[in-house]
Write a protein that binds this DNA or RNA. Structure first.
Lengths: 199, 199
DNA sequence: GTCTATAAGTGGATAGAC
DNA sequence: GTCTATCCACTTATAGAC
């Protein structure tokens, strides 16, 4: 096994465990066990837990960017692309009902720990935010694109948190339909007020 | 110091620490130190960490019920009462931007830990949910009161999570104004479709 | 009811053999 | 690159003196 391949496996295993159990609750022994490494060898690849966290966040940023690129290429209209984002709540509903949103829960945990990597985790949100801003700009809403982007992010986070608490799939589907309807109302920029436009 | 008074102080201190740092990240020593007790004496009052957690959740349920009762008595219209709920995001903005929503973050953490008290924490959400259902019912929306209640809860959770991540007070205020506008649109039940009604 | 002392285990982290 | 052995700090938890 090459060092870089082992390292990659560690990051993938840590990514999963940090998501499923949380950062604090995951020990070196847990990650080492998941990739069948001794704890001693483990330290050859990562010297501190914070180093692993940094690598996991970097890995998530790469994976997120790849997903955003795929959505950009896979849908024709900006509205369809935004819906691609919203629909991950359905696609990943089983994981979300069990462990929440990977981004939201990590940011919350690192905030409480007042962890140095907190701002790096927030960059995951920023990645989605910037991508959504570009979609709303393409929709002709450049004036309030950032407020609209944050509104969509806000809804996805709220749905994820309540989905974890209540494990109610019908609720998730209903709220996604509601976002879709809201999005339709946002499309014609200069029409009579449908939903309240964001200032 | 009587035992019950010491016990109450422990619960209050644990409540604060669980909120600010998280359940896992808070040790017995942290709580004991906060109430200036030795660890040994601490075990006279609580035998396990889970017992403290149960007491903290019970304490939060009592406190929440008291707040709901106060809102019930303090506002004349159901819409005003719902706004009382939404405005806690402003009232508690400093704490929320630092540590998130006490209910949402606790439920998320206990879900990840697959903790036995997880469902007890969700009861905090259920308390708000039932109260909101009663307000929407009083508004004449008995048919979809539960969907509307979950929608309001969802928004408050989404705003709290993003407020923690971005620490953007203007975003919080904007979204609260948006909820208020949405709420106004929900008031006349049989008017032409303003925002999308919830099925 | 409060304390000190201490057990038993787990956490992160290191040294050095192979 | 991988292992075993080990260290130290910390965590939960108990026993028993006062």
């Amino acid at each position: 096994m090459t060092a870089s391949e082992t390292r990659r496996q560690i990051v993938v295993a840590a990514d999963r465990l940090f998501y499923e159990r949380g950062f604090e609750a995951t020990s070196f022994a847990d990650i080492a066990g998941a990739v069948r490494l001794s704890r001693g060898n483990f330290y050859y690849h990562f010297r501190t837990k914070d180093e692993i966290l940094q690598a996991v966040i970097a890995h998530r940023i790469d994976a997120t960017q790849a997903v955003l690129d795929a959505w950009e290429a896979g849908a024709d209209s900006p509205a369809e692309r935004i819906l691609s984002f919203v629909r991950i709540l359905i696609t990943n509903r089983t994981a979300i009902m069990a462990h929440g949103c990977p981004v939201g829960t990590l940011c919350n945990e690192l905030s409480k720990l007042d962890h140095a990597a907190k701002d790096d985790a927030v960059r995951l949100f920023t990645l989605f935010r910037g991508w959504l801003v570009r979609q709303f700009t393409a929709l002709g809403r450049e004036a309030d694109a950032d407020a609209l982007a944050l509104h969509v992010l806000m809804r996805s986070q709220g749905v994820a948190t309540l989905a974890t608490a209540f494990r109610d799939e019908a609720f998730v589907r209903r709220e996604i339909d509601d976002v879709a309807a809201w999005l339709t109302a946002q499309c014609p920029p200069a029409s009579p007020p449908a939903s309240r436009p964001h200032p």
